[in-house]
């Protein structure tokens, strides 16, 4: 079976990337059928985070479309078993997933660990894609200020950059959302 469509979406904080991702998922479901799935990666670590999660949940539930929510904060590949070829899946967002993988263990960030984390995320995404109809992956742009070398932010940005490069390469379509406006960077919408 051919791999399902992979759609990659990024943008800055509050750029409207999540709304756009949900919109294209709903549009796709309307046109082609299929079950909408939300793969929730967030861990409610503080009240503000909990509020954000609830806001996103309400937004999805208040719409006409029915979303199924599946919670998987780490090793997302394990959730592949829940899906079948009728599923449209939204993952929002890669940075949360990366944080969960990086900060859950008291592990030193050596090259070996970072390579393992990247592998877990990329193969996890591919596993889900292989089972589904459409997989939409949302992430965050964080690469536009000066970064001091060899600190935590440097390694974090480097691994996130590598993940984004791989996802754009694998994706059928890629979008950059600027101030609510999606810019089609790859593939035809």
């Amino acid at each position: 079976m051919a791999a399902a469509s992979l759609i990659f979406i990024t943008g800055g904080v509050r750029s409207g990337k999540s709304s756009f991702a949900e919109k294209i998922a709903v549009e796709y479901a309307k046109e082609n059928g299929g079950q909408l799935n939300y793969l929730a990666t967030g861990v409610a670590s503080d009240p503000e985070m909990r509020e954000r999660i609830v806001k996103h949940q309400n937004d999805r539930e208040s719409g006409k479309s029915r979303w199924r929510t599946i919670e998987q904060s780490q090793t997302i590949g394990e959730s592949a078993a829940y899906f079948n070829k009728e599923d449209i899946i939204l993952i929002d967002c890669v940075t949360t997933l990366l944080n969960n993988e990086l900060f859950s263990y008291n592990q030193e960030w050596d090259d070996c660990f970072l390579a393992h984390v990247m592998e877990t995320i990329i193969t996890g995404i591919n596993k889900i894609r292989d089972r589904a109809k459409v997989l939409i992956v949302v992430s965050n742009e964080v690469f536009y200020e000066s970064i001091a070398e060899n600190n935590l932010v440097f390694f974090y940005s480097r691994i996130l950059g590598k993940i984004h490069q791989q996802l754009v390469k694998d994706a059928n379509q890629a979008f950059l959302v600027e101030a609510g406006i999606p810019i089609n960077m790859k593939g035809v919408r």
Partner: peptide
């Protein structure tokens, strides 16, 4: 001259 820019870790 060809000038190439973009964010860090973008594959320039």
């Amino acid at each position: 001259m060809h000038f190439i820019t973009g964010g860090a870790f973008n594959g320039k």
